[in-house]
Design a protein around this nucleic acid. Structure first.
Length: 584
RNA sequence: CGGGGUGUGGCGCAGUGGUUAGCGCGCAUGGUUUGGGACCAUGAGGUCGGAGGUUCAAAUCCUCUCACCCCGACCA
């Protein structure tokens, strides 16, 4: 490709709306252009990168036994009613009405369509396992698109769906997909960490995300550097350590037997608003108190109780209650419910649904609100003094907490989710009647898994973690071009004719070349070469031609080497081949 | 959806009531240049997000509205 003919223009300054590194660089390099919030065009350079990524993914999916197909973006809304997921997707599901006033959905994902399809074509265990995938545009009406390509409303995604006869088969499919994903990230030169994840609106049981840890990431990963445990903060567990102080107050052997515990005792606690104030007023650590938090969940007022030193994890709470809408109650709503913020506890409260974190069982003799202003109770114990409707792990893991596996210290980092795999189980296949006859002639629902990768986000993630102050640094495997051919002083001696000849020869050798045939100053050309991030730059000028050579420089290196013009194409190909083998 | 911010040539910005709205980059033409974003000259290009209002006069003040960005909520 001749640079002079290339559609798209490099920018010296990034458009003001771009904040994240990848967004800025991709705009400056002329690889993408924004049309609306979360809606982008890919310009020729960006599209070349995207297609390279796509091919790598396709190769790995095929290698793992996947069969590619194409599914419709426009989907009958009935499919979404049938799966019940129109509710969990909520407003994120784009819908439209056709001329016959029939509602259609714009596919945010394709489990419904594929399961409907498989239901019609698969009848026997002999046809399983089955791995089907598509790479295509998906649409989701995101509440907040952000970070350029990091979170968008229209995006190209590879989604593979596995169909198995039994749990062991699902495990196998799941493992083989995880391996395929690892291969993909390796080939993209992207260090991705596999973490335990919540399955969100997709539903299902087990789920893992692949995360690229980088400052600009929008997810939080909790991990243990001691044993390797890693989970999305939404999902992360931790040991709710019982401090010795609390332990010492428990009646040693006969843990929790009501008769041995001291009685509830009311104490005056004036001027204490927060848990910290209460704890320090009474003279105990915050983990010896219980705090109350109030939510409105699917329209119902919910009382949540959790140990004073912990925070509520709303995702866990949502899952525990199997609800969709959740928000903190306002102070007015709390008062309306007859509770006093700052002094509330479940003791003596009736008629309000109460959910407790399991940390309430991690100790004894807690300080809790007395449900009247300026008073708390001492020695509150569950279940002696109060009951709850549900006990679950609904606490947020935070850095410094103890690892659930090895009790090591947990850390946290920001990450970009570059892949998500789910063990769906049978809940969708059951809804669609997708079942098969096993070898005993018995009908059973097909067990499903799904495995998604967003291509644009992957592209952005590569930029986020592979760039410098000059621009993007593409790995050779996805770079828009492998070689940047950069002649200087086009009007001098044999520069231009030689460059033209080299350009032809490199292409004949099968190399992808961006030929900077513009009559611009060296600075402009070098800066654009760096901004575009093309792996190998070949510079020729009257100076290098004096010794019948061109200068070869890797984007990642400072120093260049001279290569003879003679037989240059073969030599360059060798260089690139060596570098590819380095990467994989 | 809550909070904050921004809308002025393709991009970055200046201009807070007073004649034909400026500057840098980019673009076009000509010339001189050229190893890390050269220079000179000439030129094209905006009616100031939109609507309404106040005023003799509005990019500038007021009201409404739209769009985009950031934080949060939510979400893959």
């Amino acid at each position: 490709m001749r640079f002079s003919k290339l559609f798209g223009k490099t920018l010296r300054q990034a458009p003001a709306e771009a904040e994240s590194v990848s967004h800025q660089l991709l705009l400056r390099a002329g690889m993408i252009a924004q049309e609306a919030a979360g809606i982008y065009s890919y310009l020729p350079l960006g599209w070349r990168v995207l297609r390279n990524i796509e091919n790598i993914i396709r190769e790995e999916m095929d290698k793992a036994g996947g069969q590619e197909l194409m599914l419709p973006v426009l989907q009958p809304f009935e499919l979404w009613q049938q799966s019940g997921r129109y509710a969990s997707f909520g407003k994120s599901l784009f819908t439209l009405t056709d001329r016959k006033e029939h509602t259609l959905a714009l596919g945010p994902t394709h489990e419904e369509v594929i399961t409907d399809l498989v239901h019609r074509y698969v009848q026997s265990y002999r046809e399983l396992p089955l791995l089907l995938y598509q790479i295509q545009t998906k649409l989701r009406d995101e509440p907040r698109p952000r970070g350029g390509l990091l979170r968008v409303r229209e995006f190209i995604m590879k989604d593979l769906y596995s169909f198995d006869a039994d749990e062991a088969g699902l495990d196998e499919s799941y493992q083989s997909m995880c391996q395929a994903y690892r291969n993909i990230y390796t080939r993209l030169d992207l260090p991705a960490l596999i973490v335990e994840a919540d399955s969100g609106a997709i539903g299902g049981k087990d789920s893992h995300e692949f995360m690229v840890l980088t400052e600009g990431g929008e997810d939080e990963v909790i991990y243990c550097s001691n044993c390797g445990y890693a989970a999305n903060a939404d999902k992360a567990q931790f040991v709710k350590t019982v401090e010795p102080v609390i332990r010492s107050q428990s009646p040693d052997s006969s843990e929790g037997e009501a008769k041995n515990l001291p009685p509830l005792e009311e104490i005056a606690t004036p001027e204490t608003k927060t848990i910290e104030e209460v704890a320090s007023f009474v003279g105990v650590p915050t983990n010896q108190t219980l705090k109350a938090v109030f939510y409105f969940i699917d329209g119902e007022f919910i009382f949540v109780i959790i140990r004073g030193d912990l925070e509520v994890n709303e995702t866990k709470l949502r899952n525990a209650l199997k609800c969709s809408e959740l928000r903190l109650a306002t102070e007015g709503e709390v008062n309306e419910a007859g509770l006093i913020a700052g002094f509330a506890s479940p003791i003596g409260i009736k008629g309000i649904k109460t959910v407790a974190d399991d940390s309430i069982t991690s100790g004894f003799n807690f300080i809790v609100g007395a449900n009247k202003p300026r008073y708390h109770f001492r020695n509150a114990n569950y279940p002696r003094d109060f009951q709850v409707d549900l006990i679950a792990d609904i606490a947020l893991a935070q850095p410094g907490d103890s690892c659930p596996r090895c009790r090591g210290k947990l850390s946290s980092a920001r990450g970009i989710e570059v892949g998500h795999v789910f063990k769906l189980g049978t809940f969708i296949s059951e809804r669609f009647g997708a079942s098969f006859l096993d070898s005993d002639g018995k009908s059973r629902p097909i067990i499903m898994g799904c495995y998604g990768i967003g291509l644009g986000r992957l592209l952005a993630a590569i930029v986020e973690q592979s760039h410098d102050d000059k621009g993007i640094i593409w790995p050779l495997s996805v770079a828009p071009y492998q070689v940047y051919l950069c002649p200087l002083h086009l009007d001098k001696s044999a520069v231009l004719p030689t460059a033209e000849r080299i350009y032809q020869e490199l292409q004949k050798e099968g190399l992808e070349v961006l030929f900077d045939d513009r009559d611009d100053s060296p600075g402009v050309k070098f800066n654009d070469a760096d901004l575009l991030g093309i792996p190998l730059r070949l510079t020729l000028s009257p100076r290098t031609l004096q010794s019948q050579s061109v200068e070869a420089k890797w984007r990642t290196e400072k120093e260049a080497q001279l290569l003879p013009v003679e037989n240059l194409a073969a030599e360059v190909k060798k260089l690139l081949d060596e570098n590819v083998s380095f990467q994989s």
